[in-house]
Write a protein that binds this DNA or RNA. Sequence first.
DNA 1: GGATTTTCTTGATTTGCATCATTCCCGACG
DNA 2: CGTCGGGAATGATGCAAATCAAGAAAATCC
Lengths: 226, 226
Amino acid sequence: MDLSALSFLRHIPLFAHCTDEERAELAAAAHELRVAKGTTLFRRGDPCEGMHVLVYGRVSIVVASKSGTEKVVELIQPGQSFGEAIMFLGGESYPVSAQTVEDALVLFLPASAIFAVLDRDPRFARRMLAGLSMRLHGLLRDVESYTLESASDRVVTYLLQQLGEAASGTVTLPVNKQLIASRLNLTPETFSRVLQRIVEQCDVVVSGREIHISDRVRLAELLKSA
Amino acid sequence: MDLSALSFLRHIPLFAHCTDEERAELAAAAHELRVAKGTTLFRRGDPCEGMHVLVYGRVSIVVASKSGTEKVVELIQPGQSFGEAIMFLGGESYPVSAQTVEDALVLFLPASAIFAVLDRDPRFARRMLAGLSMRLHGLLRDVESYTLESASDRVVTYLLQQLGEAASGTVTLPVNKQLIASRLNLTPETFSRVLQRIVEQCDVVVSGREIHISDRVRLAELLKSA
DNA sequence: GGATTTTCTTGATTTGCATCATTCCCGACG
DNA sequence: CGTCGGGAATGATGCAAATCAAGAAAATCC
């Protein structure tokens, strides 16, 4: 158990620059969770006693309104950590729920272990601060797109972002379209229609979760019309 | 200059538990900015070389879309810090702009000074992590309300939050209604109409920026109808 | 391989909020 | 004192996206 956790940690950006002893210490305290698709790792209101790191699989972070509707606020990819922020607040319970979208391997790191390393290694503290800052930055971008971009702008922005720097290429949606739609704060219906419009106007081809973009610039044109 | 900065820092939560030497060190490096209402402290794209702390006055953090519309993402109150997150990312430029809404006094703390203290005091690192986490939590709540609450729910939620625990009382809007509306992601017109409906249905009285709420529960009722 | 469930698409209709356009209010200031 | 100007209220209209309602297409299961 600890052995594999140890080797995983080495490949997680947040822990990549830790010393071997630090990683060993963390690995010793870690719990490996091998969980099936659809498992809830924690739900809103649960006490938070540590942080999670996703090794493989996908995890969705969702908020639920009292009217029952759920919304994906974040899709966690392998290598990403989640739940740190609540841990640092101390004594707070989770404001969101986390569930696996596929079979997954998750490491759970107890708060005590993290704090122990944190107190003794300022470089780890810096990395942690940078990690939280990046998360914050991401959420800010989300707020920005939710509040002042239109539905189709959000889809285009998302595709361009997934495409990265490349002028053309194929974007593979990490999860099914419903979840992507929720992540972009639109209904599956709207997402479908927007995608269709993009296909018509920007010679983009969609087959299943694969989206082939032949010209990045052509796609970006759609944003200008605003 | 340094003398007053020193005494200010003692009253800022983030620095309240620092040692006197640490605060002295920070104060020595700090710049005091006394700025008039309407001053831009930084704008999107500017390089980030440190963090800001608001001593008095109000500061609005805004994002701007390419179509020219601006949106308030956060209203900074005295005692709050802002701009740390970008500092920790290192070498990034601001994704938002900050401007004063009233005459204000702002402390600017260069990154080097913060990092110096950070590297030597793990307790300060923890406080900083907690601070960022709280910010993150706040943004998450914003995302939640933008995406799954209606306009009137957002207003009610805001009022209840400002009211705090009290069963009744007066909420004073920190800035004018246009900015509050923007902060809640609605137009001034809609804000006005929603307020009016609240006045009619929940015996709430509005006079200028003062909002008298006679019964918290009565106000909260409006949320249930969803 | 066919049946059943889930996911995705497509169409018709509704609606909440923005937008546009006035008007009203109140403090500032000559 | 009047008038000017930004902030706020109110009314009429438009529109983007949600909702409702079926189908079509995949994926999953026996």
